[in-house]
Write a protein that binds this DNA or RNA. Structure first.
Length: 548
RNA sequence: UGGGGUGUCGCCAAGCGGUAAGGCACGGGAUUUUGAUUCCCGCAUUCGUAGGUUCAAAUCCUGCCACCCCAGCCA
């Protein structure tokens, strides 16, 4: 078999196994899984996990199961499984099979009975508090439960009674019988089944005992024939238990192998389902797919292209070192993609009238639809000499190196002519309300006419007469500062998080005057001239991909 | 203080005994119908630290330091 070149340490590990012939028996098929718990919407952190798993699937021509890790009925719901399926679809990740851990409840229960019969598990009557108290500490061994040596018969009877529902929640649990003095606390007789008289969103009231993650996950992997179970670093301590559970169940080799990687962190972005759920539940955002949320659906509604998300995850790489990636790197990927795909248009946020005193008539100017893309076509924009420019593109007291318009200065109206500002008309309150300018006919864009007139800057404009139809005259950013949840709340929620919640989102998305959503691309303007204001130089129609 | 991990440029990250890739950010220059894009150019004599092995170490060995994870009937 041809072994592909590894792009990260996980694939390197797989390659070594392949080279050693570990999977020869099954034709060197690699089988992975992506196992979210349907208890919330997927966020950008999950995209990294997906890229890793789907990357392995593709590179080794393997298979991938999307598995709903639904072993805790209290938290899970169909709304979330649907949202997960939708997110994968939007991202373009194609899995081979959709499976549910809850599909294995019968099988898992059988294995639990086998554990009991083999003397590897016992029913423990200790309360949750007592179990905690007898588990020991980081430095001291735990003490064995008084129920640890019950006979297999008694354990079986009790466990069946638990299943039958005659015991209340919390009265008994099934524990794995491993080692109460293990330095790894996860091995100190962990609970593998608990009683919960809770309706499960899929199995209804069929069960009142549910398997724990540490029991269900490795067995689900083994049942599905997963070869590599990729998860985040915090499960490293669980690996010995993962291996133990599979071994005692008696699965034949090759048995699934758990490999851990560092999860994604981004500056200014809160990535914890628990906190995101709070924001939704407490009404700080409009929902899981609110454009301020770092969820995949939120990002989508923010105007982020899926390819940008995937590119970002690929760029960031996979390693075992804890890390926090700068949001700038995400932004860069988004801009990169948008620059390639975005259709261009001009926009004005805070209109300021600009009248060209020596121009009459009207003409149609030709623009490239997307200068970054070859043969992207053209768009035509009508020009009458009466336009609006953005207030921020005119300064009464231009700072040094100012490149836009000021009294007596010149600027190019993008795609049109260079104009000189002769007069700034003020209203009663003393605010500039109109600019009177002179234009230079020979400076028309695209013409190579000889001229001595120069302009340092280029500004966008919208025609006063045709603007509303031709280009977008006025638009509102969808996300404003005041749309962000208050920072005190953010800090109370998660003291460790850096200041803001989701990061100051780049205003990728805006709404035009007629309510049409448009995508914005940050440019140098925004970068260098934000004094509270927001100045974008490109907007893009999002009609097709936006569906809110 | 037990166990498990991790430490390479401001932020990610390659590197796997032969003399420090790449991306983001940043700085400089050129082109420009967006202060954008594109295009050049610059950006770790040094790999947590102290020793040791070797002709040769970020890579091997030893000690130390820092940070992260584990005591849910969550996943």
């Amino acid at each position: 078999m041809k072994i592909p070149e590894a792009t990260n340490f996980i694939e390197q590990f797989i390659n070594e196994e392949l080279a050693a012939g570990k999977f020869e028996a099954n034709g060197n098929k690699i089988h992975v899984r992506f196992p979210p718990e349907p208890n919330g919407y997927l966020h950008i952190g999950h995209v990294k996990a997906m890229c890793i798993n789907f990357g392995v699937k593709e590179r080794y021509d393997g298979t991938l199961n999307l598995r709903m890790d639904d072993t805790n009925p209290a938290k899970e719901d169909y709304e979330y499984v649907n949202s997960i399926v939708d997110a994968l679809k939007w991202l373009g990740f194609e899995y081979d099979k959709l499976v549910f851990a809850s599909d294995y409840y019968d099988k898992l229960y059988e294995i639990a009975e086998k554990y009991i019969i083999d003397g590897n598990a016992y029913v423990c009557d200790l309360s949750a508090e007592e179990i905690t108290a007898t588990r020991g500490t980081l430095t001291e061994a735990g003490t064995p439960s008084p129920y640890r040596n019950r006979s297999a018969e008694e354990n079986l009877k009790l466990f069946r009674e638990m299943k039958a529902g005659i015991y209340p929640d919390g009265s008994r649990v099934l524990r794995a019988k491993i080692d109460m003095s293990s330095p790894n606390i996860n091995m100190r007789d962990p609970v593998i089944y608990r009683i919960a008289h809770v309706e499960h969103y899929r199995t209804g009231n069929k069960w009142c005992v549910y398997p724990m993650y540490d029991f269900a996950h490795p067995l689900s992997d083994a049942i599905e024939g997963i070869t590599h179970s990729l998860c985040s670093l915090e499960f490293e301590n669980h690996r010995p238990l993962y291996d133990w559970v599979i071994e005692k169940a008696g699965f034949p080799a090759p048995v699934p192998r758990q490999i851990e990687f560092a999860r994604l962190n981004i500056t200014n972005m809160l990535m914890s389902k628990r906190y995101l759920k709070k924001l939704v539940d407490e009404g700080f955002v409009r929902g899981w797919d609110d454009p301020r949320m770092p969820t995949i659906m939120g990002l989508k509604n923010r105007g982020v292209p899926p390819t940008a998300l995937k590119k970002f995850c690929t760029d960031v790489g996979v390693a075992k070192a804890y890390s926090v990636v700068n949001q700038a790197q995400l932004d860069s990927c988004i801009r990169d993609e948008l620059n390639e795909t975005a259709e261009r248009a001009m926009a004005v946020i805070n209109p300021l009238k600009l009248t060209i005193t020596n121009y009459s008539g009207e003409e149609e100017l030709v623009f490239e639809k997307n200068p970054a893309k070859e043969n992207s076509g053209v768009r035509k924009v009508k020009f009458t000499g009466n336009v609006y420019i953005d207030r921020d593109d005119f300064s009464e007291n231009p700072p040094p190196k100012y490149k836009r318009l000021y009294l007596g200065g010149t600027v190019r109206l993008k795609g049109a002519y260079i104009v000189r500002c002769d007069e700034a008309v003020k209203d009663d309150s003393g605010e500039v309300c109109e600019l009177k300018c002179t234009y230079f006919p020979e400076t028309k864009s695209g013409s190579n006419a000889e001229t001595t007139v120069k302009a340092k800057g280029v500004v966008q404009w919208v025609d006063a007469l045709y603007g509303a139809d031709a280009e977008f005259r006025r638009y509102q950013p969808l996300l404003k500062d005041e749309d962000y949840p208050d920072q005190d709340y953010a800090e109370r929620l998660n003291k460790d998080s850096e200041k803001s919640f989701f990061g100051k989102a780049e205003p990728y998305l805006a709404e035009s005057a007629d309510g049409t959503p448009f995508q914005l691309m940050r440019t140098g303007y925004y970068k260098k001239c934000t004094d509270g204001g927001l100045l974008l130089s490109e907007i893009v129609s999002l009609k097709d991909s936006f569906n809110k």
